[in-house]
Write a protein that binds this DNA or RNA. Structure first.
Lengths: 153, 153
DNA sequence: ATATGTGCAAATTCTTTGCATTAGA
DNA sequence: TCTAATGCAAAGAATTTGCACATAT
């Protein structure tokens, strides 16, 4: 009997393989491992988070340098998004090309909550004559989450 | 005869001194120098930019560590804003308390253009039941500026 | 077979910290 | 005088790089 979980895992593996193939990247275990983790949980995760998670699923963990190189590569290919919450450590999450979204970060416990989707309309936010091409944006929210608000800090 | 420029400079010095006094900070030359520079040009500037600019106005340049400490202090006191454009180096600009604004960064020449003011309305962007307290946001735009768009890269 | 990817170790870059000394208020 | 601020040097943290070896296609 095939469990539901095992089924999902194999689906993910197939998707991960297809994703690499579509970008002409070789199927290596660091890459498959990283995409697998990012498909399983939303994140975003720091490089260290990801490196630690890799340890739990593989015997021979890839080198930290490889994790850095892999994610930099993935970012260039827009397989992942890089998130910068201004705390000195970058975080990565899988890119979803049908929408994009932002996060709200708790300044107390550092938890990260994804927001449903982006409602920013560039036309209304930027001056009409800005003259910039290929405009994108980074938007992150910060605050004190409901749990931390209750607790006396 | 007093030139227009000299007059502005002395006005700035007076404002800088008042700013420090209002926060109970001692009047030291690193602090006065930094505020002076930030009042003169919008920036935002990296720590290194500021350190280099200090060299042009003072004989005995403050140590880099002092520049870091001073700006961290200023940020806590909300005298300056810290800007993070995701390129690995933080930038600082004077905080204006009557408004806040964002920037558009050219991905080609790295120039930074301040946008007039922020038009983001938290109510419409965040889900109504988010439950976070003391919400703030960081928003930066990226693109290719008009000059760089013209030039063949 | 061959270009691509990886491990390892060292180097870089940005930032922070400890501590003795100096200097504002 | 007495606390706060600075300089200096060293430590830290995150990330990048060079190069020889390994591996996917």
């Amino acid at each position: 009997m095939v469990t539901e979980k095992a089924k999902k895992t194999s689906e993910r593996q197939a998707k991960a393989a297809a994703l690499l193939k579509s970008h002409n990247l070789k199927q290596t275990s660091p890459r498959l491992g990283l995409i697998g983790i990012l498909m399983e949980e939303h994140g975003p995760f720091t490089i260290d988070d990801l490196h630690i998670k890799l340890k739990t699923i593989t015997a021979d963990v890839p080198d930290l340098a490889t994790v850095y190189r892999t994610l930099t590569r993935f970012e260039e290919l827009e397989i992942v998004n890089r998130c910068d919450f201004g705390d000195g450590t970058l975080r990565y999450e899988l890119a979803h090309h049908d929408h994009h979204h932002h996060h709200i970060v708790c300044l107390s416990c550092r938890s990260v909550t994804p927001l449903a989707h982006c409602t920013i309309d560039l036309e209304t936010v930027l001056p009409p004559d800005h003259g910039f091409a290929r405009v994108s944006h980074k938007l992150e929210f910060f605050g004190i989450c409901p749990q931390c608000t209750k607790k006396p800090s």
